[in-house]
Nucleic acid binder design. Structure first.
Length: 271
DNA sequence: ATGCCCTCTAAAAGAGGA
């Protein structure tokens, strides 16, 4: 086997991104540009907001990506794209979901890595049934993460967790402004800590231990212009994946474009 | 205190987002 084929099978570096695109149909030109410019090896998408039948697979394949998706008409919806490869689907939805009508989880194997694309419920208003649903969903994710932990392969749990991990301005422009929001509630943060304490590594914060690393800026009230953002898109790594972590970042330039999503793509590199 | 804005679907005096 020549070196080129070896590199294709065992790439020396793998870039894995998560991107809540807020509507894949409205965002398709931005998505294709981003794939061509940033060339992630794997892209986990959330809020594709389209049914399975209307997923724009032709355009994504034309950009050089294979894909699997778990769609839903109008809301939610997740996908996993792989550059020059077909992600091998492992599951759609979490185990034991009492309400499988929400399309919020899809999991695949790509190049020897298990990758999940996660759209955790927002949970507003808190308290209330939507907040209860968020916490219950998070508990099921943590249970499933324990099962993945027991497997052989490195695991990356990537997505929009809808949790601001800490009150620090490193994670949120104003804790006070967000005090009543489901994203900052003690129960939301406790669930996120349970995942961390189970041994999962918050990749972005590991690479950038200090300073703001926002991933979301609201469309309203000039949030982008005044950098009123927060950090809710996370890539959580199993030990085998964390051992290979070499870099992480946020594609802030993508948020500045016309017709941008309110989230920015967030990524890691693994050796 | 509330809404600011955006996308979806339906065709709204709307729902949902974060």
């Amino acid at each position: 086997m020549d070196d080129g084929r070896l590199r294709a099978r065992y790439p020396r570096r793998m870039k894995i991104a998560t991107f809540n695109i807020n509507g894949i149909k409205a965002r398709l030109p931005r998505l294709v540009e981003w794939l061509e410019q940033k060339a992630p090896d794997v892209a986990c998408l959330q809020e594709i907001k389209t049914s399975d039948e209307t997923f724009p697979i032709a355009e994504i394949e034309a950009a050089g990506y294979g894909a699997i998706w778990h769609g839903q008409k109008g809301f939610n919806g997740v996908a996993i794209l792989a550059k020059g490869a077909q992600p091998v689907e492992r599951r759609k939805g979490l185990p034991d979901d009492p309400d499988p009508s929400h399309s919020r989880y899809i999991e695949a194997e790509v190049n020897g890595v298990v990758v999940a694309s996660i759209y955790l419920p927002n949970g507003n208003p808190a308290p209330g049934p939507k907040f209860d649903y968020k916490l219950a969903w998070f508990d099921r994710l943590i249970d499933h993460a324990a099962d993945l932990w027991a497997g052989e392969m490195p695991v990356v749990l990537a997505g929009d967790y809808n949790v601001i991990p800490t009150p620090s301005t490193d994670d949120v422009f104003s804790e006070r402004a967000m005090a009543s929001d489901a994203l900052t509630q003690p129960e939301s943060r406790a669930a996120f800590r349970r995942l961390c304490n189970a041994g999962w590594t918050d990749a972005v914060r590991t690479i950038h231990p200090h300073g703001p690393v926002y991933t979301f800026w609201d469309y309203q009230a000039g949030a982008w212009q005044r950098d009123a953002g927060f950090r809710i898109d996370h890539l959580m790594l199993s030990p085998a994946a964390a051992d290979r972590l070499t870099g992480a970042g946020v594609d802030k330039d993508t948020r500045a474009l016309e017709k941008a999503s309110d989230h920015a793509p967030t990524w890691i590199t693994l050796r």
